[in-house]
Simulated scan of single mutants.
Amino acid sequence: MQPCSLRRISLNQKTTERWNVQEAVEGCVRADVPWIALWREKVAEAGLQSSKRLVRDAGLQVSSLCRGGMFPAATAAERAARLDDNRRAVDEAAELWADVLVLVCGAAPDRDIGSARQWVKEGIAELAPYAKDRGITLGIEPLHPMYAAERSVVVTLAQALDLAEAYPADEVGVIVDVFHVWWDPDLEAQIARAGDRIKGFHVSDWIVPTPDLLMGRGMMGDGKIDIRGIRQLVETAGYGGPIEVEIFNQIIWYTPGDIVLAQMKQRYVEHV
Rank of each mutant, 00 (worst) to 15 (best):
S5Q: 04
L6T: 09
L6C: 12
R8I: 07
L11G: 04
Q13I: 09
E17L: 15
E17Y: 07
E17A: 14
E17R: 04
V21C: 08
E23G: 11
A24G: 03
A24K: 05
R30W: 14
A31R: 06
D32R: 13
D32Y: 13
P34Y: 06
W35C: 00
A37P: 03
L38M: 07
W39A: 04
E41T: 12
L48N: 08
S50I: 15
K52R: 10
K52M: 06
R53G: 10
R56E: 06
R56A: 14
Q61C: 10
S63V: 03
M70L: 14
F71Y: 08
P72K: 12
A73T: 06
A73H: 12
A73K: 08
A73I: 10
R79H: 05
A80I: 08
D84I: 09
D85G: 11
R87Q: 06
V90P: 01
E95C: 12
D99F: 14
D99S: 09
L103I: 12
G106R: 02
A107R: 00
A107L: 03
D112I: 15
D112M: 15
I113K: 11
I113R: 10
A116C: 10
Q118I: 12
W119D: 03
V120Q: 00
V120T: 10
K121T: 14
K121N: 13
G123D: 01
G123W: 01
E126I: 03
L127K: 08
A128P: 01
P129F: 07
K132L: 11
D133G: 15
L143S: 02
H144V: 15
H144C: 08
P145H: 01
M146P: 05
M146A: 11
Y147E: 09
A149Q: 15
E150R: 05
S152E: 05
S152A: 10
V153K: 08
V153H: 04
V154C: 06
V155I: 14
T156Q: 03
A160G: 04
L163D: 00
D170S: 09
D170W: 07
I175L: 06
D177C: 07
D177I: 02
F179T: 07
F179M: 03
F179V: 07
D184V: 13
D186V: 13
L187D: 05
A189R: 13
Q190Y: 07
Q190P: 00
A192E: 13
R193E: 01
A194T: 13
G195L: 01
D196L: 09
D196G: 13
K199A: 08
S204M: 07
W206M: 10
V208H: 08
V208D: 12
V208C: 11
P209T: 09
P211K: 12
D212H: 11
L214D: 03
G218W: 00
G221M: 02
D222N: 05
G223C: 05
I225V: 14
I225L: 07
G229D: 02
R231C: 14
L233P: 03
V234Y: 02
A237P: 02
Y239C: 03
Y239M: 00
G240K: 01
V245G: 06
V245Q: 00
N249W: 01
I251V: 15
Y254S: 12
Y254I: 04
I259R: 10
I259L: 15
A262R: 13
M264T: 14
Q266G: 09
E270R: 14
V272C: 11
